[in-house]
C-alpha cells in the first residue's frame, strides 16, 4: 500500500479587496504534487454570515460582489484536500478597509495657472474602485523633463467628486515637468499602481 501524502498546510494567506468587485485571497504553496481541492471558508458582515469559495489546483479564490461590501471584518480559513486527507490553515481576520486596492488615478490635465508663476494645476479622475466612504491618500511624483530625479508630495482628499485637482507650487518658471500620481484608501496598506505620466509647463517669468 502507498504512503499517505497529505497536502501542505495552507499558509501566508494574503487577501486584497477590490471595491464593489471582489475579495481575492491567495496562499502558499502555489503548487502541490497531487490534485488538491481548496475550500475557503469566510465569515462576513462582522461575523453574522458565512459562505465558501472553492478552487482546484489553484492557490487562489475570490468572493464576489454584492456579497463583499465595505466596511467589514471578514475571517478566512483555507482547507486543502487531496485523496489522502484534509489540512486546514489557521484562521485569519481581515478588515477590508486595510486591504482595499484601487486602480491608478487618471491624470487628464496639467496646465499652468494663469497669472501664477512657477505653479501648475493637475486635474484627475477619482478612481472608480476607491470606496465612497474612504478618505484617499495620494503621492504625486514630478521631475523636470531633462532630470532623472523624482521629487514627491503627499496629500489626502476626503471629497468624493469625480474630478479632483491639486496645485503644485514652488516649480521653476517656464519649465516642462513630468508628473505621475498614485493613491490608496487612507487605512489601506495597498497603493494603486502609478498613473500614466503626464507633462505640463509652467508659465514664463514676466
Amino acid at each position: 500500500f502507498g504512503l499517505a501524502v497529505l497536502p501542505h498546510k495552507p499558509e501566508n494567506i494574503s487577501c486584497i479587496f477590490y471595491y464593489r468587485c471582489n475579495l481575492t485571497c491567495t496562499w502558499s504553496p502555489e503548487k502541490e504534487a497531487n490534485d488538491t481541492w481548496y475550500t475557503v471558508k469566510r465569515t462576513y458582515l462582522y461575523g453574522s454570515e458565512n459562505d465558501t469559495c472553492k478552487s482546484e489546483n489553484r492557490a487562489s479564490c475570490s468572493f464576489f460582489y454584492p456579497n463583499v461590501t465595505n466596511p467589514d471584518i471578514c475571517t478566512i480559513e483555507v482547507e486543502a484536500q487531496n485523496t489522502d486527507g484534509i489540512v486546514k490553515s489557521s484562521m485569519t481576520q481581515w478588515n477590508l478597509d486595510n486591504i482595499v486596492k484601487t486602480e491608478p488615478p487618471e491624470i487628464y490635465c496639467v496646465k499652468p495657472a494663469l497669472g501664477v508663476k512657477r505653479m501648475v494645476q493637475i486635474k484627475w479622475r477619482r478612481p472608480r474602485l476607491a470606496p465612497i466612504s474612504s478618505v484617499l491618500k495620494y503621492t504625486l511624483q514630478f521631475r523636470t523633463v531633462n532630470s532623472a530625479k523624482w521629487l514627491e508630495v503627499n496629500f489626502t482628499r476626503e471629497d468624493i467628486s469625480i474630478i479632483q485637482t491639486y496645485d503644485l507650487t514652488g516649480l521653476q518658471a517656464f519649465t516642462e515637468y513630468v508628473l505621475t500620481l498614485r493613491c490608496a484608501a487612507e487605512e489601506s496598506r495597498f497603493w494603486s499602481e502609478w498613473s500614466q505620466e503626464k507633462t505640463g509647463t509652467t508659465e514664463e517669468q514676466a
Binding site: K41, T43, Y46, G47, N50, P71, I73, T75, E77, K88, M91, Q93
Partner: peptide, 14 residues
C-alpha cells in the same frame, strides 16, 4: 464553521 474569532460589531467610525 469552526470559528474561534469573535468579531466586534461595527464601531462608530465604521
Amino acid at each position: 464553521f469552526s470559528h474561534t474569532l469573535r468579531i466586534p460589531r461595527p464601531d462608530a467610525k465604521d
